[in-house]
Design a protein around this nucleic acid. Structure first.
Lengths: 228, 228, 228, 228
DNA sequence: CATGAATGAGCTTTCATTCAT
DNA sequence: AATGAATGAAAGCTCATTCAT
């Protein structure tokens, strides 16, 4: 299962919006030192979004944490949204890769183990990217470009899962499950649980979490259910 | 199933925080006209939170929508957080009531129908309260008092569900499921799905949603599974 | 000769642009006290534009001179351009009135005296409005809405004058004069001379100025000249 | 009529102000490549002043148009005023030369043709130098050194013209004209007309313009008029 | 009770200028 | 000579909150 089949659907790396935002300060060429500063700022932004949330984050918090001057920020980003977009696009790419790995999970004990491993991977990724994901979700409400990106990612996940569900056994089922709907529900569960757990700090044990979620997913994917 | 068993756990109706916020402006006695204005402001706030999100909402947006003067706002609320708290507390009460109704759901086709009906109720409540819920979630990140309230509500839900799961059949199970964890996972799913669907506007049909979610819940509550 | 025939050509009092700029802070209703503050700000702006020039003028200079807070400015104007526009529109109206008075000047000694009186009036108006006129001219370069307004005013003047020239004797002329071109040239002269004199502070005596300019205008309007 | 009689009046080629500005960066010796870069920057500045006006022009615009690095600018100029001064001084020299050519224009048809030719030359020069002239006029308001230079140039022009007027016929005059005042008025007309026409883009035909202005000048210089 | 004017802190963004390489 | 990264001082603008009427 390579990343060939999936990957980011729409446009390439840098969105049109960010490009336009940049056009005020004309297109700068970034050298080596510049790149280092840019990365420092990105990391700082990630941190600050985690600590204060997206809307409460001030550009000053970011530059301070990055140890640069205030002005430096605007050398590399048009504004707060722009940093977030850079982070979000990178995160989205990880998510697409993750979604691709869902393909090919099968019924049976081996399938369960695959699923379990996948959930584990998701949790790990979520943990790394949670500041971005949450900033992103917050921003979705205020900025339509993030909304779009969010829909793309969700769609990508849901598509893969729905596919898996549809392939599931469909004889002697007990209750009706719609693949598309169930797919979004499962992703919702995963995302939100990780949020309550890893961001908000719920009292859960990693193993138990992974097993429980994998089990619920497994049932939804391959469990006995009524014909819709 | 009355509200006796459950209900708001900790402190009584009006939280300490709100009291304090109020005490800045010395305890005003609100007459009949005043009460009407207060309600107009609350409704307006709910609307504005829906349209612009909590952080982007300005006091001015609220008073404008309410048709009052800017100053009037501060006659009834200490600040934006204070309005949200008033709304959130009301919403929380509905949620507690909802959680109570979960008690007593049983295995079998009748149980499935009960569950289905409950999910339907949840969806309806979410629809009514989504502006508040989302504002609340946003605010949790920036204000610990909402964090606390959120934990209480989530705990209340999860407790009920965990209880139901624990009573479920526990012979011949296939995969391990931890009641406490599963409970939070299921609530997460419900909340988040409703968000993507009702707030963000996903393309789902109400019947299908309710059936699908009820089915997943049913499996998680009563499905065949291994001892944890 | 009343103002009926002339007056502002295009749209009424407040331009579409200013309206749009205002729409952020939603349409406020201004009471009596507000109106007073607004006027204080307008007067202060006029002063500051005179002292520092339009581009160098900061909003803070204006509020300081007006004795208000920084924020008050934005209660009444969207930005610096907006104040200038308010001033410019008022000035433009005076200019239209002035242009109207040009109509009906005739050949002969009486006509010369009319012309002389008119120039005197123009000088007086220029003196009163010079801060605005100069800010306006500066702004034309950076903002097309002022460019438009400027063209309207210039056109209005030039039209009246060209009309007068065209009616002038056209027999036995010495040199070719195109009415439209000459009109703009004469207005240019008047405007610019007043600038060098009243704004820059040239060493001229009022009587002499008025006589000299009136004489040049008179020659251009009614002087002997060749058929074009 | 050589440039001997006229030429720049006061101090020699490089003004005291520019010297001082330069002395911040210790007197650098500029080689051949350096000279080329300096010229590129000057040309670029001229362009940018034309396109955006003086106050809105940023150093970055200039270096970008010149194709140099941002830092290079400060190798050759102390700041924006400094570039403008370099351009303005060069322009002023052209203007002095132009003023010199006014000397010796006589009454009669031949004189008119001389005048016409001179106006044509003025227009051509204005066209070439308009970016500088306008930047200069803008800067006069904010920087007294340009004010001084401006007075010098205007004085030079006006002096020549006043001289010519004074020599004009002074018998049987119709209206009073003061030579000094008229001179400034005529220059004002010329400058401002060219501005409205060539910078702002008025709808005039070159031939007509030259004829009309020459005619008005001619009348003012040699026309019938009353003793002052 | 209600109003709307006034305030000023807080953030954002821009750009001239300096400096290390 | 040239480069482009970094800096920080201005401005600009917004909005929660207070106050006089």
């Amino acid at each position: 299962m390579t990343r060939v089949a999936g990957g980011r659907p729409g446009p390439p790396m840098m969105s049109a919006v960010a490009k336009k935002a940049k056009s005020v300060q004309q297109e700068r060429v970034i050298g080596e030192q510049g790149e280092r500063t840019r990365v420092k700022l990105l990391e700082a932004a990630r941190q600050v979004f985690l600590e204060r949330g997206y809307s409460a984050a001030r550009v000053d918090d970011i530059t301070q944490k990055a140890g640069t001057s205030h002005g430096a920020f605007y050398l590399y980003f048009a504004n707060k949204q722009d940093v977030l977009e850079a982070l979000a696009v990178a995160t989205a790419d990880h998510m697409y890769a993750l979604a691709d790995e869902l393909e090919g999970i099968e019924v049976g004990e081996a399938g369960y183990e695959q699923l379990r491993a996948w959930v584990e991977r998701f949790v790990a990724e979520y943990e790394r990217h949670s500041p971005v994901i949450n900033a992103w979700i917050t921003a979705e409400m205020e900025d339509s470009r993030f909304d779009q990106l969010g829909r793309e990612v969700l769609g990508q996940f849901a598509g893969r899962i729905a596919h898996a569900i549809a392939r599931g056994v469909d004889a002697g089922l007990r209750h009706p499950v719609d693949p598309g709907t169930a797919a979004v529900a499962l992703v919702s569960m995963l995302e939100r649980f990780c949020y309550f757990w890893l961001v908000r700090g719920g009292p859960f044990k990693r193993d138990v979490v992974v097993d429980t979620i994998a089990a619920i997913w497994y049932e939804a994917l391959f469990g006995q259910r009524k014909r819709a």
